[in-house]
Design a protein around this nucleic acid. Structure first.
Length: 428
RNA sequence: GGAGAGGUGGGUGAGUGGCUGAAACCAACGGUUUGCUAAACCGUCAUAGUGCGACAAGUGCUAUCGAGGGUUCGAAUCCCUCCCUCUCCGCCA
């Protein structure tokens, strides 16, 4: 949600920002409603003032046992008028909110302008030595994760589909253990090395929470909804974790706040069938360790860089080749002001796969969710900046992990840091 | 699922139709006092919208006592609907 004042004062900048994100421009309509709204407010406030003043006079007259019938009759009319105008006002405000909720966040000046992912900016890559499959373009003996998973009996996509439908992975045996190990490894890394506080959130949230982080109203179709209870399955732990302090005012000493939590993530992604549906590439349910930060406004971009570094640390520890990409305006999500994607190399797919998306939302989510802080006891509350990033999503990570760590015989070597979590070093 | 209780400012908690945006206390902040601390005393102490003003300082008005509607000249206070929290019972991991 953008500040109305900001739209009123810089309409052209906002228009440009909307265009850069390929979103619908409603600035004209918003400004018109804003004008109407303010005109009504001025008029109705004056009437309310009259009503309040005269009502006081009536009270005094009655106290002195004098007649107040004239004034009462007069105010009866005024009250009716107020009632009508208040209802007009409410209608206009609803229309405005409807439009404002669909205005995307403005991007940071460092974000490259562009339409599609081809305009994204490559920042850096990290490719460890001695990784097999890095030249996989020429290596036809490499197996992809689906083949590996089924050969080793650790992934069973067919039976997962039997249970729930396609896109609901089933891990078996050492595959299940490896998944659990990954989650624990990542959590421990962020808690012990990066200073995050652990959170274990609910996986189902209400509409207020979804609105707070910006999933609603725009992305409702992409989520699983429990209609009877008006609850949603979370698409990411970002939603519950960012909303923890919704509607609250924090002290400056509580910032920055680093929170880290595991959750299952549920995505309907209506309409995406047929694209990259193989194995783990695109699934309806996956596991993710999420990093969330609350920051002071002036520090949020430093915090973003650190956040990206925290996500990279996972990949480096696991020896997985990756590259870091800065998304262009057109590829940056609705609520984000700046987003980096981490993409890991999957030799079996011969593709770079997005495994983490790290964003600074500035005050966009904080405004929707009303999360503020006070610099000190006397100062006015300000909106915090919120950030989040995957740290990381295991399904995509698992693809790369399996494919990069396969031996010529088709075994999987478990990366060293995971072994204390798995209890085994090879899957065969 | 059944029965009951309750939702007031940062907290506790008064307040059943008219100077109540809201007592009191606590916390917080500023100050006086003090060798330091404590205590005591004085003061300040909500948020949002909107107007005037320089998108300042400041100042006026309006709204807000869970949410929405209703009654009334006037509602924290009366009526209706909804939401939430708590307690007890049942069921259940």
């Amino acid at each position: 949600m953008l500040d109305m004042k900001r739209i009123r004062e810089n309409p052209d900048l906002i228009r440009q920002g909307i265009a850069n994100k390929n979103e619908k421009d409603t600035v004209g309509d918003i400004l018109e409603l804003d004008g109407k709204r303010r005109a009504i407010i001025q008029e109705v406030d004056a009437l309310k003032n009259t009503r309040n003043v005269v009502s006081d006079e009536i009270a005094k007259l009655k106290k002195n046992k004098e007649n107040a019938d004239d004034k009462i009759a007069e105010m009866k009319v005024v009250s009716e008028k107020i009632k009508g105008m208040d209802s007009d006002l409410r209608e206009i405000e609803e229309q405005m909110d409807e439009l404002l909720l669909f205005v995307p966040n403005m991007v940071h000046e460092s974000v490259p302008v562009g339409k599609t992912e081809s305009d994204n900016k490559h920042i850096r890559e990290w490719i460890p030595e001695g990784i097999i499959g890095l030249n996989a373009e020429s290596d036809e003996t490499l197996l992809d994760h689906v083949a590996l998973g089924s050969k080793l009996g650790i992934l069973d996509f067919e039976r997962g589909a039997k249970l729930s439908g396609s896109g609901f992975p089933l891990y078996m045996g050492k595959g299940a253990t490896l998944e659990r190990a990954l989650i624990n490894f990542m959590l421990d890394l962020h808690l012990e090395k990066h200073g995050y506080k652990e959170v274990f959130p609910p996986f189902v949230v209400n509409t207020e929470s979804m609105r707070g982080t910006g999933q609603l109203p725009k992305l409702g179709d992409d989520m699983y909804r429990c209609a009877d209870d008006d609850l949603y399955l979370i698409p990411t732990a970002e939603v519950p974790i960012t909303n923890i302090y919704r509607g609250e005012t924090l002290g400056a000493d509580e910032l920055p706040m680093y929170m880290c939590g595991y959750s299952s993530c549920f995505r309907r992604e209506a309409g995406s069938y047929g694209k990259e549906t193989k194995g783990f590439l695109r699934v309806h349910e996956f596991n993710k360790v999420e990093l969330v930060k609350y920051s002071m406004p002036e520090n949020s971009y430093d915090e973003l860089e650190k956040l990206v570094g925290n996500a990279e640390a996972v990949l480096q520890a696991l020896n997985i080749p990756y590259r870091l990409v800065l998304l262009c305006t057109g590829d940056t999500s609705f609520a984000s002001a700046k987003t980096y994607d981490l993409e890991i190399w999957a030799p079996g797919e011969k593709k770079w796969l997005e495994v983490s998306s790290c964003s600074n939302f500035e005050d966009f989510q904080a405004r929707r969710a009303n999360i503020r802080f006070k610099r000190d006891a006397k100062s006015k509350p300000e909106f915090i900046h919120t950030l989040n990033g995957s740290g990381l999503a295991t399904s995509r990570l698992m693809i790369s992990l399996l494919e990069n760590n396969q031996t010529p015989e088709g075994k999987i070597v478990v990366p060293k840091p995971l072994q204390k979590y798995t209890g085994f070093s090879v899957i065969e």
